[in-house]
Amino acid sequence: MAPPIAPHTIDLTINGTAHRLDVAPWTTLLDLLREDLKLTGTKKGCDHGQCGACTVLVDGKRVNSCLTLAVMKDGATVTTVEGLARNGQLHPVQEAFIARDAFQCGYCTPGQLCSAVGLMAEGHAHSAEEIRELMSGNLCRCGAYANIVAAVQDALAAQSTQREAAE
């Protein structure tokens, strides 16, 4: 038997809170969030990077947490669906999902929301067509796509109105 492999100590800022954590090299960010930190908003769908249910933001970029080894993200800032609302105020994307009824069973929703927030920060989606293409990493088995596209469109429109007002 090979000697046991020692855990690695890493620092992560998750939804604004600093954590010092001991992780085994094979622990995915998804399992760390769900099992160790009880942040079960992030969902395990396929666990192979094919469905997008596990999407979170790492240093502001949307990634599949199921294919991310936590040990590699030492020092990173992570935002999960639990961290999207600020001071009791839902994120505009969350508001838009409710207004547009952009979900049915809700299982893909945390991933859709984090993905949409990432998409808005990237700034490459403008038309419905571009939203469809750039949200294609998030599958919805209920088929709520039409309303998801509408919700993301609303959130993008609100974002540009806000930007214009700030200028």
């Binding site: 990077g49 997008g52 999407t55 970029k61 949307r62 990634v63 599949n64 294919l67 991310t68 993905s115 990432g118 998409l119 990237e122 750039l134 949200m135 294609s136 990493g137 998030n138």
Partner: peptide, 9 residues
């Protein structure tokens, strides 16, 4: 290729 998430990684 792939999805926006995977292209980010």
């Amino acid at each position: 290729g792939a999805s926006p998430q995977l292209r980010n990684m």
